[in-house]
Amino acid sequence: MVLVGRSWLLAVVAFLYLPIAVMIAMAFNASSLYALPIKPSLQWFVALAGDAPLLTATRNSLAIALFTSIVATLVGTLASIALSRQAFRGRSLLKALLLPPIAIPWLITGTAMLVFFFWTGIGRGLHAMMIGHVALAIPYVVLVVGTGMEAVRVDLEEAAMSLGSTPVHAFVAVTMPLLAPSIVAAGLFAFAVSLDQFVVSYFLSTPGVSTLPVEIYSSIRKGFTPEINAISAIFFGVSTLLVLLFAQLSNLGGNRGRR
């Protein structure tokens, strides 16, 4: 039984990684028709360096992700403090309002943003994508920081206050340092959410101003070249690094026991 279970798990992992492995391997293959066996070559990575639209799109993606990560983390952490430390009427309603941006299909959120931004004159482009991405990332930040906050004991803060420190000082001096890993994790999470976001960017981009996923999408629809593999392989590597960092910081699946 144990053996069957383990083989099933390995088969599932193989299924999850097979296409990704093929995609990365083909980035290093000289054949532009993805022919086997693989002839090692770096030509597609070299070609990438001269591809101005892709490079611009990559810069846009990084700029939006950085902006999203900073703003969503700041705004989301503030909200998270209020939601998890203070009792007030309507708190559960406010918590429930975090769900729509996560639960509604991005297609609907994205088209709704397009309609509203176009109608009100906010328009499309970099600023529109930034507004959209921050909104998508805020609920995740609130959830990640909120979970971290649960692990930090309230009585430490209360002890500081009973020893004469103000609520704000108690929070900054006692809770903040304990919360720091969660906040950094939330920032990384927001960065990854923005970097991977395709649907909302797709509706808010203009022909000249797009992001890497949008650019990859239009290249796929135009036809296949291993150049897309090369950029995808780099993209995959960066996303993986971010997730590993996030896992390390938020102590995912481990039990170092902060409580």
Binding site: M23, M26, Y34, I228, N229, S239
Partner: peptide, 13 residues
């Protein structure tokens, strides 16, 4: 947590 588009593209190959 890696780009969904990239994974779908991998399947086309």
């Amino acid at each position: 947590w890696t780009n969904g588009l990239v994974r779908i593209f991998s399947w086309t190959i």
